[in-house]
Design a protein around this nucleic acid. Structure first.
Length: 412
DNA sequence: TCCGCTCACACCTTTGAATGGA
DNA sequence: ATCCATTCAAAGGTGTGAGCGG
């Protein structure tokens, strides 16, 4: 995890934000553009996927009015956070799973861009799992310093980003407010919204950012937890995450095997301990930085797993809910009442060769005009150019309690 | 008592270096 | 000398359960 100003101090401290572009496709919960300035280009379009539990492409919709608060804490240009002694041992963090993955079009193939991801609180409430659903339960903890994850391929050309979906599967979450490793810090039991930022460097060594576009996909909102609240979420993750293979039905770490081991332990030494574990169905091929490695599309056993993860007549889970795990299960995902069923609203993408996505089933959707927490039709967005001083990250979050807090914690 | 968090654990995947053959 | 495939070990990611504290 890095702070962009430390990595690329020459990129400058300010950037302009311009008018959002009108959206087109209303069949999906719209991705919301919070700011943009690409005067010489068609507006970029982002398609959102949940790796492993993948959504059909979601065309960029129109944006709400952009609210720009005063910048808060800033660092002098180019200042690097000092090293403060040795890093403490092992970071208590876990990867976000499934990972955010987006496709982008409309970039200048020659220009260079940075892809960033951050997570902002959705509201001011703390949540609690009430057996069937997540319900607000008290006031949220004070907001933590914002951190930004920079995609490791950054900066790269527009052609590079458009070549294939951009995966953020390496994003790590933690609830340690003192985390020195630069992981995204979240409060447990709070609702968050990931945002994708696309920053164009007009010239890598210039003193100005070439522009920035910021997107949020309502279907990726999640509630952070440190322990599973919903057992069906557990099953979904085990089924979909290759790292949890050992916990699957036939795995050595499944409940039946664990119970058997405990019994054998009580009786004496385990006789079959030296047997080989390999099953030969390990995912193949390298996991590059752009394509997520959490679920291999080429592995026929991996991708369809979520469909088989839960029994068909699933118990009600209270409609929509989502959990993202901090120290323990790193993920963001939901608990649809029809977990094993493909959502008909998301037809299989042509030529994808993948199972149709489950995304809609995992959405943390708020009741609202368009079925999501965001207006189906974007509000009018009068042009108003803004210029932020003090650093491009994070962008203002257009909601209650939004503020800009840059550099109050070391970023790596 | 309940609930959430921390920690240790076993199991598994990922990754990159080392090796050998073409 | 180069390229490619294979092997191997270390690093890292996973959920679970016990224990702890508020």
């Amino acid at each position: 995890m890095y702070h962009p100003r430390e990595l690329y101090p020459s990129l400058g401290t300010g950037y302009r934000l311009g008018p959002p572009q009108p959206g087109t496709d209303s069949s999906f919960p719209p991705a919301l553009a919070e700011g943009y300035r690409y005067p010489d280009l068609d507006p970029p379009k982002l398609d959102c996927f949940l790796s492993g539990i993948e959504a059909a492409p979601c065309t960029l919709g129109a944006a709400p009015p952009l609210l720009l608060p005063e910048p808060a804490l800033t660092l002098p240009l180019g200042e690097v956070w000092p090293e403060s002694g040795p890093l403490p041992s092992p970071p208590l963090s876990r990867r976000m799973f499934p990972a955010c993955r987006v496709s982008v079009t409309g970039l200048d193939p020659e220009a260079r861009y940075l892809f960033l991801l951050d997570v902002v609180p959705v509201d001011g409430a703390r949540y609690r799992w009430q057996g069937r659903r997540w319900e607000p339960s008290g006031k949220a903890e004070p907001r933590l310093p914002d951190r930004v994850y920079i995609h490791p391929d950054s900066p790269a050309t527009g052609a590079h980003w458009m070549r294939q979906p951009v995966s953020f599967h390496r994003v790590k979450l933690t609830n340690s407010t003192l985390d020195p490793h630069g992981h995204l810090i979240l409060h447990s039991m709070h609702k968050y919204q990931p945002r994708i930022h696309l920053v164009r460097a007009a010239q890598l060594c210039s003193q100005h950012w070439g522009g920035v576009a910021s997107f949020r996909f309502p279907e990726t909102a999640f509630i952070s937890v440190t322990a599973y609240q919903n057992p069906r979420i557990t099953q979904l993750k085990i089924a979909a995450n290759p790292f949890a293979k050992g916990f699957r039905e036939n795995g050595r770490n499944c409940k039946r095997e664990r119970d058997a081991r405990v019994k054998r332990k009580l009786r004496g030494p385990e006789p079959g301990a030296a047997e080989a574990y390999g099953s030969g169905d390990a995912p193949s091929g390298p996991c590059d930085s752009t394509l997520g490695g959490d679920v291999r599309e080429s592995d026929p056993e991996q991708a369809p797993a979520p469909r088989e993860a839960a029994p068909a007549p699933a118990p009600p889970c209270g409609g929509s809910s989502a959990e993202a795990y901090l120290l323990h299960p790193a993920a963001f995902h939901g608990a649809p009442s029809h977990l094993p069923t493909r959502n008909p609203s998301f037809p299989e993408a042509p030529d994808s060769g993948r199972p149709a996505p489950y995304s809609a089933a995992f959405l943390e959707l708020q009741p609202g005009p368009g079925g999501s927490g965001y207006p189906a039709a974007a509000p009018p967005a009068p042009f108003a150019s803004h210029f932020l001083q003090g650093g491009p990250f994070p962008l203002a979050y257009p909601g209650p309690g939004a503020y800009l807090d840059v550099g109050s914690k070391p970023m790596y």
